[in-house]
Computed example of a mutant assay.
Amino acid sequence: MSTDIPNDGISLRFKYGPHTIFLFVDRVASFDAISTQLLAVLRERYPRGLLQGDPSLPGNTAVPPAGQACHIVYGLPRNPRDLVAGWRAVNVEGENPTTLKLRQNAVLAFALETDSDPKPEFRVEIPTFDEEEP
């Protein structure tokens, strides 16, 4: 007899610069919990910071160490079919993926809001497939 395992999770794609972080999260997890999970992954995977993607911007964006105050700001695409159209900030306080009606593999931009950068921007680099020159 087979046992059905409930699938209460959802895969989300979080973008910053050229980075895309795939996280499997609980559909009803608060964004505070998701932010904690995302920060843990960023600290482990990018100890030297996140690439900004824009060559004109010097250096990397530092990921604050554990214990340092950091708030993650999230953005949803203005047009989900055209990520180049930009991002709109979304208030995730008291929200979860279900209340925001996020679907499997939804894309969210994120920015790290710290004391030194109180107004972060969504810096997302979208890959393009240009035809090769003959």
Results as ranks from 00 to 15, higher is better:
residue 65 P to A: 12
residue 87 W to V: 02
residue 126 I to S: 06
residue 101 K to P: 00
residue 106 A to S: 15
residue 106 A to I: 07
residue 14 F to C: 07
residue 14 F to R: 03
residue 19 H to E: 04
residue 132 E to N: 13
residue 9 G to S: 11
residue 15 K to F: 10
residue 23 L to S: 02
residue 26 D to F: 00
residue 123 R to D: 03
residue 123 R to A: 12
residue 79 N to F: 08
residue 71 H to K: 14
residue 46 Y to N: 09
residue 75 G to E: 03
residue 21 I to A: 09
residue 5 I to E: 07
residue 98 T to N: 07
residue 79 N to M: 06
residue 48 R to K: 15
residue 77 P to R: 01
residue 13 R to S: 10
residue 111 A to L: 00
residue 103 R to S: 15
residue 9 G to W: 00
residue 92 V to Q: 05
residue 50 L to K: 14
residue 21 I to L: 14
residue 77 P to Q: 10
residue 112 L to Q: 08
residue 54 D to N: 13
residue 133 E to D: 15
residue 43 R to G: 10
residue 109 A to T: 06
residue 95 E to G: 01
residue 16 Y to T: 04
residue 10 I to K: 01
residue 117 D to V: 15
residue 115 D to P: 04
residue 122 F to M: 01
residue 19 H to A: 05
residue 17 G to R: 11
residue 105 N to F: 02
residue 9 G to V: 04
residue 72 I to G: 00
residue 25 V to A: 03
residue 94 G to F: 13
residue 36 T to H: 02
residue 45 R to A: 14
residue 108 L to E: 10
residue 86 G to S: 06
residue 39 L to T: 05
residue 19 H to F: 03
residue 88 R to W: 00
residue 59 G to S: 14
residue 102 L to I: 08
residue 124 V to N: 01
residue 3 T to F: 09
residue 108 L to I: 04
residue 115 D to M: 12
residue 43 R to T: 02
residue 48 R to M: 10
residue 62 A to K: 03
residue 57 L to W: 11
residue 78 R to T: 14
residue 41 V to I: 12
residue 3 T to A: 00
residue 50 L to M: 04
residue 106 A to V: 10
residue 129 F to N: 04
residue 131 E to T: 10
residue 103 R to Q: 15
residue 32 D to G: 11
residue 114 T to Q: 12
residue 32 D to N: 14
residue 104 Q to A: 14
residue 114 T to M: 10
residue 120 P to L: 14
residue 23 L to P: 00
residue 64 P to L: 06
residue 86 G to F: 05
residue 125 E to A: 12
residue 57 L to F: 09
residue 52 Q to V: 05
residue 108 L to M: 07
residue 38 L to R: 12
residue 88 R to N: 09
residue 132 E to L: 15
residue 73 V to D: 02
residue 6 P to E: 11
residue 16 Y to C: 08
residue 89 A to H: 04
residue 84 V to Y: 08
residue 58 P to Q: 14
residue 58 P to E: 15
residue 30 S to V: 05
residue 80 P to L: 04
residue 31 F to G: 06
residue 95 E to V: 06
residue 100 L to S: 04
residue 73 V to R: 12
residue 51 L to I: 06
residue 2 S to A: 05
residue 112 L to P: 09
residue 111 A to K: 01
residue 44 E to T: 09
residue 92 V to I: 10
residue 10 I to V: 13
residue 55 P to M: 04
residue 111 A to F: 05
residue 8 D to N: 05
residue 94 G to R: 08
residue 30 S to F: 06
residue 40 A to P: 00
residue 42 L to V: 02
residue 44 E to Y: 09
residue 67 G to H: 08
residue 124 V to W: 01
residue 92 V to E: 11
residue 77 P to L: 11
residue 39 L to K: 01
residue 101 K to D: 13
residue 12 L to S: 13
